[in-house]
């Protein structure tokens, strides 16, 4: 569990899940007695410390400070992971904690920032662009069988030569305007 990893605990007790088929199918969660009160049992979930976390956010500065909107889960993920790569819509010279919208990840948690406008597409990025409903419908339709999904992956992923190529081919033209593309890399 990422929550446990984020606080450096080897595992964390969690309420619920007892008697579910989910629990039967997972080997990272077990039912255990409370060591301080052995008559009562709970599920304990193993901690996860990923080698890498990669996620998309709104804005970063050149030191690697990141404004990640209201998605608190990204903070947990960054804390739990050994290396953190953040793709962002916008890179600015300096980002103060006070001007970050929602969660602020200080550069101490971040290894690498990649400038990748429209990096969340076909999902949305709040304050920048909405979910691309048409592209999502295409995805849902083609995900229905292995054959059509292979074709989808070929078209949208394997045949794509660069991020700019993806944006030019798949992001709606009216969303792009000026300044789309770019592939600046900053190491924090």
């Amino acid at each position: 569990m990422i929550q446990a990893g984020s606080v450096g605990a080897p595992y964390v007790p969690v309420l619920g899940l007892v008697g579910t088929d989910l629990l039967k199918r997972r080997d990272d969660m077990k039912i255990c007695p409370d060591p301080f009160n052995p008559e009562v049992k709970t599920v304990v979930a193993k901690a996860y410390r990923p080698d890498f976390a990669i996620f998309h956010a709104q804005k970063a500065d050149r030191r690697g400070n990141v404004s990640a909107g209201w998605t608190n889960d990204d903070t947990l993920l960054a804390e739990a992971s050994r290396h953190v790569i953040v793709t962002v819509e916008e890179v600015v010279d300096e980002l103060a904690a006070a001007e970050a919208k929602g969660s602020f990840l200080p550069s101490i948690l971040v290894d690498t920032v990649v400038h990748a406008p429209f990096g969340a597409h076909p999902a949305g990025c709040p304050d920048y662009y909405p979910v691309d409903d048409a592209a999502m419908k295409t995805y849902a339709r083609q995900a229905a069988s292995d054959e059509s999904f292979a074709a989808y992956l070929e078209e949208t992923t394997y045949s794509v030569t660069s991020h700019e190529d993806y944006v030019a081919r798949f992001v709606p033209a009216e969303w792009r305007g000026e300044g789309a593309g770019g592939d600046e890399r900053d190491s924090a």
């Binding site: 619920g16 008697g19 579910t20 088929d21 989910l22 009562v40």
Partner: peptide, 16 residues
């Protein structure tokens, strides 16, 4: 076909 959450639990498990 799949239990996502169970209606009741054994008495020795923590449940509110």
């Amino acid at each position: 076909d799949f239990i996502s959450a169970a209606g009741t639990s054994p008495p020795d498990t923590l449940r509110y």
